[in-house]
Amino acid sequence: MNKVRLATVWLDGCSGCHMSFLDMDERILQIAPKIDLVYSPLVDHKEFPENVDVTIVEGAVSSEEDLEKIKKIRSRTKLIVALGDCAVTSNVPGMRNPMGTKAVLERAYLENAQENRHIPNQVIPPLLKTSRPVHDVVKVDVFVPGCPPNADTIFYVLNELLEGREPDLGHLKFG
């Protein structure tokens, strides 16, 4: 049997969704034989591979790097799962949206900085004007709200997808 090529990515989020993923605990062992984890913060691959079956996305699209990444991911993935409120709604990263990027950068790097007060223009990727939900930028196939979605939900979603079924997620809630 061909294993499902699974990737997980972490855009602008707190990694809580990945922690929740790990909270599946021993159930990961049930899933492991059916998948190839081809890319993830949990494994050491530098480049997002081609021909990915399922990519689980945590986090909102907040920077130009995120934007570039998610576009590449979309072009190389059959099915994208937006996992958690940041990916689905932009959530906490989106709280800056009403204020604009200038205000948050100044707050973080000037007003609250103890020393070396300047807004970085190297290394740190430029922020987008607004932090956006993943589906605002690329097509998303499955939405899993929750902050974070609990391990049971993640297990259910993965199981359904691996069985070739569309998970029924209408009952999930934000937060």
Partner: peptide, 11 residues
């Protein structure tokens, strides 16, 4: 489970 329209982000 998700919005099918843009957020307005009012201040």
């Amino acid at each position: 489970t998700h919005l099918t329209m843009p957020y307005r982000y009012p201040r």
